[in-house]
Computed example of a mutant assay.
Amino acid sequence: MKVAVIMGSSSDFETMRDAIETLKFFGIEVEYKIVSAHRTPEFMLEYAKNAINNGIEVIIAGAG
């Protein structure tokens, strides 16, 4: 299983860090990216559309 943890900006990383570390602790492959729905909506849409093709089964999104 591969999980993507996405956040609105780099300042959200501290909030999302525990989710990333918990997934890694349980041996779950995780990638994390800055995907701003406000600043880069086209990128966000493409990222979500291509998630399954990139092996991502779950997306966890958070923003501050």
Rank of each mutant, 00 (worst) to 15 (best):
M1H: 08
M1F: 07
M1V: 04
K2F: 00
V3Y: 01
A4M: 07
A4T: 02
A4R: 00
A4G: 06
V5W: 00
V5A: 04
V5H: 04
I6L: 13
I6A: 03
I6M: 10
M7T: 03
M7Y: 11
G8L: 03
G8M: 03
G8H: 00
G8S: 00
S9V: 02
S9D: 07
S9C: 10
S10A: 14
S10H: 15
S11C: 07
F13P: 02
F13D: 03
E14N: 12
E14W: 11
T15Y: 15
T15D: 12
T15S: 15
M16I: 14
M16H: 06
R17S: 13
R17D: 09
R17C: 09
D18C: 10
D18H: 11
A19T: 15
I20G: 01
I20L: 03
E21C: 06
E21H: 05
E21R: 12
T22H: 13
T22S: 15
L23P: 07
K24P: 01
F25E: 14
F25Y: 10
F26Y: 14
G27E: 01
G27C: 04
G27S: 05
I28N: 06
I28Q: 11
E29P: 00
E29A: 11
E31S: 13
E31A: 05
K33S: 14
K33R: 15
I34A: 04
I34L: 01
V35Q: 09
V35L: 10
S36T: 02
S36D: 00
S36N: 02
A37V: 05
H38Y: 05
H38Q: 11
H38R: 08
R39P: 04
T40Q: 11
T40W: 08
T40S: 14
T40E: 15
P41H: 09
E42F: 13
E42H: 05
E42V: 07
F43R: 12
F43N: 06
F43M: 12
M44C: 11
M44F: 12
M44P: 00
M44V: 07
M44N: 05
M44H: 01
L45A: 13
L45T: 02
L45E: 10
E46K: 15
E46N: 13
E46F: 14
A48M: 14
A48E: 12
A48C: 15
A48F: 09
K49Y: 11
K49C: 08
K49W: 10
N50H: 02
A51M: 02
I52L: 03
I52D: 04
N53F: 09
N54H: 14
N54Y: 04
N54L: 03
N54V: 02
G55Y: 08
G55E: 03
I56T: 05
V58Q: 03
I59P: 00
I59L: 04
I60S: 05
I60L: 12
A61H: 07
A61I: 08
G62W: 01
G62D: 03
A63T: 11
A63W: 15
A63Q: 08
A63V: 13
G64Q: 06
G64M: 06
G64F: 12
